[in-house]
Design a binder for these strands. Structure first.
Lengths: 224, 224, 224, 224
DNA sequence: CATGAATGAGCGTTCATTCAT
DNA sequence: AATGAATGAACGCTCATTCAT
């Protein structure tokens, strides 16, 4: 047992261990998301999760304090994806306020599509979490939707959009993005992701765009 | 001792019993919806439900075969409210296609507001149901949204609305109606029901209305 | 409320009531025996019994204090049949000791065949009874087998039978009689009641009869 | 740290675990048999069983899928004892058909005496089992009684026994063997195992033996 | 680091029994 | 006499969690 303080985690063993741990965490998170979407949080036993991830039950507890923390981690994992992908997508869209809104919405939809397994958990199982967990999620949801909200606010302020309730517009975009995950039976099973995004973008923009700006965004308003 | 001849096979005892049973059912349904919204289906034990409804555990099983059936009944109860309230509201709106759509949307929102406790369960807990239960719900959701869908289709066919994907438009209206129940933390807590309905109606109509028809519906498009 | 002591239950109302009660008791006992044989004592709920007998649950408790008492009554009902049928059959067989034994065995078998439903309960469910109940049954079993035991003892004392252990011989006859009720899968399903009785009688007598007496009982020793 | 190369794929850990599991199974089976004989299958709760075996309820379910399976296992355990002990005893008896029958009967009685707790369950609780379980038991009972049946058939065919119904004779021997477990109150409490076996053997053989063979088997026909 | 046997609180459900009508 | 709604203790069973190895 070394008694010297080490400020640098430079021991190659330790590095390997960290890599291993990271890999395990991801493996467990993925397995958990997959099982929980299919069977719900309460429908997945720790044993089933261990089997799916090909580890022992005990090991799960080395990485997550308890089952609730695991759920929290799964949800946070999705929210982190928003935090990392949405701003990037917005920046890549350039300076045009409307293009940035469209890009933000598309990015939200893409994250949800990629994490379809876990995305529904946000709706379905958030009530299961501890108050602290719920607050954390709540804060993260506010944070991750901030770029979209900001883009909309900029659109209004720049005069590209009509004077709409920014909060409500954000809410609607998010609703539509999550609507893809809920992918309700109302929705034709034949409706593809690209169609969904394009059509919903067109619909929202045709309501939000200042009439005299519409001709600039024909490519967003037409869906063939 | 009845002195009047009755041709109906209605024993007064039996009638009283039926009333009592109906009352119990409603009492249990309400308690279940309230608790389940707060704690989720799995978070509510039958004992807790019995306590909330001030009856014994055993009695619940006289009215509902098991916990799943109780959830099913709670959900069906909401869907029945749609089935009874939405068509009425549409008829009361007269013959104008756009007014009928607005009335249908408002009716959906009202039912959800009245059953706010139970409405979220449709989203959150439908995965818990048996396949048969889920199919029944699915069919009922399709059926109860049919009046709205028909109203939108009529609007398109009469030329009041632009040529939009009817299915998707329905999906969006429903999403917005349920959005009131999910009433996400994104939504200002100060936004009142009337505001929500009016603003969402205005938003959707401003996207769907044929431009030359817009002036007829200023009262729906303006939200003060 | 009559204050005069009545030693005679001669009130016609009361008589009618007694008849009714007797009828109810028999109805319940029969239903209970039938259901319990099929599903076992624990497999029959009071509700199921009430349904089978077409009465209400509550009524059963007017006639039997509780479920255990009902089981006791069903078993006692069979034992009473032994007590009434076996001595009669023995007397009808005349004075010959061997004929009396054969008649006693046949009578035991007949009672078991007639009450096949309830007879198995003696074996299967006697452990369920209260100690007092079990003692009562035990005593009744000893009492009802007494005539058979006495017949065997007479046979030994009169020199018709070899000097066998009377207790054990009785045990064996009873075992064989109950063997018909248990009617194990070992037993060919084609073996009829008459065959069973005749063959078992022949077997036991061929072991018990004094050799020089055998020719007198050819009709009991031959089974075609 | 094993230094010897082992060609068997036997991990010492795994072996130890198997031993432990085997021990647990036996521990639970014994406790279950003991309690179930005293209180009947339905009279024994899983908690009571856990207490008796000094384990937790949950652990029982690691070894037996449910309560019914446990009962099945207890019964099968006895039947396996027949399957292993009866044929051995018969072979040890040599070639004489009558000696083989006597040995088979004695072996049946011995197994029942050793498993007195569990033996009664075959009679009392077989109705509790699932149809599949019952069929399995039925088949095993037929199989385990086959050696005895074969021995009797050989006795008849070799002319040692009179021309008796083999099936029925088997049934009677089995009935007598189980009679020791039921050990009815009719039976003197002072009758010892050896007496019982000897006397019952003598009784059956005196009925089944060809008269001219009897003198060869005086040691089986005399009981003290 | 990794295992999985072991725990026990808590669940959904049943059913003998009571009692107001 | 007869009903059946109502009770609640007790059951079989599950599963998150721990800990000796």
């Amino acid at each position: 047992m070394p008694t010297t303080a080490r400020s640098e985690p430079q021991d190659p063993n330790e590095a390997a261990r960290a890599v291993r741990a990271e890999w395990r965490t991801r493996q467990l998170l993925t397995a958990a998301a997959r099982l929980m979407e299919r069977d719900g949080f309460h429908g997945v036993s720790m044993q089933a999760l261990a089997d799916e991830a090909a580890v022992s039950v005990g090991l799960i507890y080395r990485y997550f304090g308890n089952k609730d923390e695991l759920l929290l981690a799964v949800i946070i994992n999705v929210l982190n994806a928003f935090a990392s992908q949405v701003p990037t997508a917005i920046e890549a869209a350039g300076d045009d306020p409307v293009e940035r809104i469209a890009a933000a919405f598309r990015a939200h939809c893409e994250v949800i599509d990629e994490h379809r397994h876990a995305a529904v958990l946000t709706y379905r199982e958030s009530g299961t979490l501890s108050p602290e967990g719920r607050n954390k999620i709540k804060q993260m949801e506010v944070d991750t939707s901030e770029p979209l909200r900001t883009a909309i606010r900029s659109g209004v302020e720049s005069g590209h959009l009509v004077d709409v309730d920014v909060q409500l517009a954000t809410h609607n975009f998010l609703l539509m993005a999550h609507g893809w995950a809920l992918k309700h039976w109302h929705l034709e099973r034949t409706l593809q992701f690209e169609d969904y995004v394009a059509k919903q973008t067109a619909l929202m923009l045709s309501a939000l765009l200042e009439p005299e700006r519409r001709h600039q965004y024909e490519h967003l308003l037409t869906t063939r």
